Simulated assay, not measured.
Amino acid sequence: MALNAESSGRLARLLNENADRLTERWTEIVAATLRGRLSQAELARQVREMHRTMIDALESGLTDLAGERGGELRAVLAELSRARAQQSFTATETAISVFALKDALLELMEETQDAQTLRDFLAFTSLLDQMGLFTFESYVRTRESLIADQAEQLLELSTPVVKLWEGVVAVPLVGTLDSARAQVVMERLLQSLVDTGSPYAIIDITGVPAVDTQVAQHILKTVVAARLMGADCIISGIRPQIAQTIVALGIEFGDIATKASLADALRHVLRLTGVETTSRRPRREA
């Protein structure tokens, strides 16, 4: 049973005439599902806003949430969904904030024997279902956006570029190097070379668990890009197991300098720049 203009008008009057009772009961039902995770004042404000917007939409002749007359109501529901997603509520808890109006209205309907009012209520439940599904979809979109933003932030944090010495920057890689992360590494390294004017860059793969052909290709592309910027790259962190894998796969690093550790790579660069390094021997006790 679908809403029509006449039933929308009758429902608007019903919601308006019983506003205090409905919003109070509506708030109680929703509060029970949220278990105190949202303040009573904030929840009551959200319920009153939905209630008022719903009345305005019904008075304008709303029959379908997707229609032009449902624009403001959709905006309110989308904002509710975004807020709940950011506050880490579940999609179900968010949708229940709409569906709870059914229970509040049903309690009111039980007091009347008016067949027309009951038919209007049945038609109205279809609209409430649309509203609940809309909040669910809006919630999911917001959560997906939040997760994507967090993943991007973690990706940036996992690929830091640090300045080790004047003219020397390093990229300590930890974990698997996939295409997306390799692109971030390249962009951050190249930007750091521009910002610092460094002629040398060290790519440390001590924290990379394994090097296969794909990982090697990512590293080589980064080295080539850095060279186009006028910087030489040194690869450090070549452990024995990784060295054996590289040889077995037939991967060629060409004339790219490789070192066993980050310290060795830094000493190598310092020698290239004319800085002499000496090892401090422990002082003997008299």
Rank of each mutant, 00 (worst) to 15 (best):
C233R: 01
C233D: 02
C233V: 13
C233P: 01
I234Q: 07
I234E: 05
I234T: 14
I235Q: 07
I235H: 09
I235R: 05
I235C: 08
S236G: 04
G237T: 02
G237H: 08
G237Q: 10
G237E: 03
I238G: 00
R239D: 07
Q241E: 15
Q241T: 13
I242K: 11
A243G: 05
A243K: 02
Q244S: 13
I246H: 06
V247K: 03
A248I: 00
A248Q: 15
L249S: 04
L249P: 09
G250D: 06
G250Y: 08
G250I: 05
I251V: 15
I251S: 06
E252V: 04
E252F: 03
E252C: 02
E252W: 02
E252P: 02
F253R: 13
F253A: 09
F253L: 14
F253N: 08
G254S: 03
D255T: 13
I256A: 02
I256R: 01
I256W: 01
T258L: 04
T258I: 09
S261I: 07
S261R: 13
S261K: 08
L262S: 09
A263Q: 15
A263S: 14
A263F: 11
D264Q: 12
A265I: 07
A265K: 08
R267C: 08
R267Q: 14
R267V: 10
H268K: 06
V269Y: 00
L270D: 05
L270P: 02
L270E: 09
L270K: 15
R271C: 06
R271Q: 14
L272A: 09
L272T: 00
L272D: 08
T273S: 12
T273D: 11
G274K: 09
G274E: 10
G274V: 09
V275K: 11
E276V: 15
E276A: 15
T277E: 07
T277I: 13
T278W: 05
T278E: 06
T278A: 12
T278V: 13
